[in-house]
């Protein structure tokens, strides 16, 4: 999104959106791109919405800024957008302020803003972590349905493995700043290759597991997540890894491809994967 703030900055690498490199794009161009071509849904709908502006106006702004609409036309389209995200009586709700809406309704408004201009990519950062589980299920269904209709790709950021499994086609697992494994969703849960992924998948208490196998001790991943100021040398997972050997302590593992279709389709970054 080009929103890194000092002291953070993009150190190296390229970010390519639909064939266009955007890592060095000037701020004005990024402003045109954000919301129009890339939408984003934030974790906390209360803090991400402007508390002093009616929600209809916050949606309409998208049409005014990105699609040269006049305000009255934009407000009509905002009402339609609210209807699409299934907010009841949208004609009244467009005049409501965020505090007048429940958490689930606010997140629907966020979805409406993010998808207003039918972006090519939607970045959803823990979109339902702040919501109750029954509401979460509704928002996820809604997001998936609207994105499918608009042809929008979703980059879903989440720590909820269950949600990821149900929603996503491909999964990349990050640990301490690096992607340690990427695979299609079915494969990563059925056959995880990196010790960290295996640990995550094994450590979950699974519904129905106790009925099948009795109350067993959960598998633990030992140790703690390293501090960003003191990443271990070599493989960053080595202090917590049961398979770590001398090479892991000094040499950062390279990518090993797991797919014949190209190295980025499915890969793992571990000296002792499998």
């Amino acid at each position: 999104m080009g929103l890194l703030k000092r002291p953070l900055s993009l150190a190296s690498g390229r970010i390519v959106l639909d064939g266009q490199e955007i890592q060095d794009a000037p701020p004005a161009e990024m402003r045109r791109l954000r919301g129009k071509r890339v939408g984003m849904i934030f974790q906390e709908p209360m803090t991400a919405l402007n508390p002093l502006s009616p929600v209809g106006r916050q949606i309409a702004e998208m049409f005014v800024l990105h699609e040269d609409a006049g305000w009255s036309e934009a407000m009509d389209r905002a009402e339609e957008a609210l209807r699409q995200v299934r907010v009841p009586s949208p004609e009244r709700r467009i005049r409501d302020y965020p505090h007048q809406l429940s958490g689930g309704m606010r997140q629907r408004v966020m979805v409406a803003i993010a998808l207003a201009c039918s972006p090519e990519l939607l970045i959803a950062d823990e979109p339902t972590t702040a919501l109750d589980v029954t509401v979460q299920a509704e928002i996820i269904d809604l997001m998936a349905e609207l994105c499918a209709a608009k042809g929008t790709a979703i980059l879903m950021i989440s720590h909820d493995l269950g949600l990821v499994a149900n929603m996503c086609r491909r999964v990349a697992v990050m640990y301490a700043g690096r992607i340690v494994e990427a695979q299609p969703a079915e494969a990563i849960f059925a056959n995880p290759q990196h010790p960290y992924t295996q640990g995550l998948v094994d450590s979950l208490p699974r519904l129905g597991e106790r009925a099948r196998r009795g109350q067993q001790r959960l598998r633990e991943i030992a140790g703690v997540v390293p501090s960003i100021q003191a990443y271990p040398a070599g493989c960053r997972f080595n202090p917590r890894c049961l398979r770590a050997t001398d090479v892991c302590l000094s040499v950062p593992p390279e990518i090993t491809s797991l797919s014949a279709d190209g190295p980025m389709q499915a890969f793992v970054r571990c000296h002792h994967h499998g």
Binding site: T134, G162, F189
Partner: peptide, 15 residues
């Protein structure tokens, strides 16, 4: 509804 709403990584969309 609560149980149905829990996405289970091992039973895709069994809900």
């Amino acid at each position: 509804a609560l149980i149905a709403a829990i996405p289970d990584p091992f039973h895709r969309a069994a809900v």
